[in-house]
Design a protein around this nucleic acid. Structure first.
Lengths: 177, 177
DNA sequence: TCGCTCATGTAACGCGTTACATGATTCG
DNA sequence: CGAATCATGTAACGCGTTACATGAGCGA
């Protein structure tokens, strides 16, 4: 599944501009999917060229014009077909865990720094999840996905905190700073 | 951090061929990092060209020759410098969660299928983690990373099982099959 | 004999990331 | 006055994924 499909799906919530879609991505599923303008704008152009979405320029006062896209009937049909066929993947690519695996090649201060950074990252994502659940309406899947993310992140944060000393000691065995 | 660095780091465990490195990746951290031959072999060639590793052809009986690589002093220096500087990322890209978020666009049978598949995937990864912890020696980071992975995956599996009905019902609200 | 494992690579392709380019308005 | 927000895009680059090409043993 690519950014194109995700944009198409997002537009089932209502008409939006590329900028708004990006904001929505960040607020709603930044913890499991990321996309930048460099992916979103071209995706929207492609979708429009295929007739799956249609865009209209809207003038705003005090703000730049925006191009608001809405999904077409053809787009809806295509979207459902795509979601029904595609085998969904779940990929994790953690350079953080690679570093933890090779902790014995790091010094203690560096390890502590990396650990702190990861904890902060998790906390930020948890805060975003709390916020989106509190303030925004969404499809039924929203609370499920938020719950999944919260459970995952809380478990990881808890693990990092409880084993902090073990992590830091992984460095001392082979590497006396 | 790219596959090059990961290969370099892996060679600190001892000399290995590209094929063996791939096997090692799969056994040890398939749950948080993936790499195919198309990345590994070129990475090894590059590293050799830079003098960070050195490879020797070894004849085997009953099996094809292999090119065994070992890390050089320059490689070790570069590796430690790289690991000390780089800001490690932790990325998740889950098409599965995207699908769950848009569950209302799916029918119940499809949702059940997707859920089952994800559960199976998690079970496979958990089995791999158990195996690598039982049978293989490794650096101190191994048990930490394995524990992190197990905690994460068990939480997710538990969440999927406990909320299965809620997931399946997310489809019925808007979409009576 | 069929298919799997061991073994090494290349080449094209797809896709996302990053940087760049531009510009009005609002808030501190 | 400077920074942030709103707003849209392009272009190059990097990197991983996939498919392809080849080939000898071994176990069912």
């Amino acid at each position: 599944m690519d950014v194109r499909t995700l944009c198409l799906a997002t537009l089932t919530h209502g008409a939006m501009s590329g900028y708004q879609i990006k904001r929505h991505f960040e607020a709603t599923f930044s913890h499991f999917f990321g996309a930048g303008y460099g992916s979103i704008y071209p995706a929207l152009s492609d979708l429009a060229a295929e007739g799956l979405v249609r865009g209209e320029d809207v003038a705003q006062d005090g703000k730049p014009d925006k191009r608001v896209f809405h999904i077409t009937a053809a787009g809806d049909t295509r979207l459902r077909a795509t979601l029904a066929e595609e085998a969904p993947r779940h990929k994790v690519r953690s350079e953080f865990l690679v570093l933890m695996y090779f902790a014995h090649l790091l010094d203690r201060a560096r390890l502590a720094e990396v650990l702190d950074e990861r904890e902060r990252g998790i906390e930020i994502q948890l805060a975003k999840i709390d916020e989106v659940e509190r303030c925004c309406a969404g499809p039924p899947g929203l609370s499920l996905v938020a719950g999944f993310g919260r459970a995952t992140l809380e478990t990881q944060l808890d693990f990092l905190r409880r084993h902090r000393e073990r992590f830091l000691d992984a460095t001392d065995a082979a590497n006396a700073t």
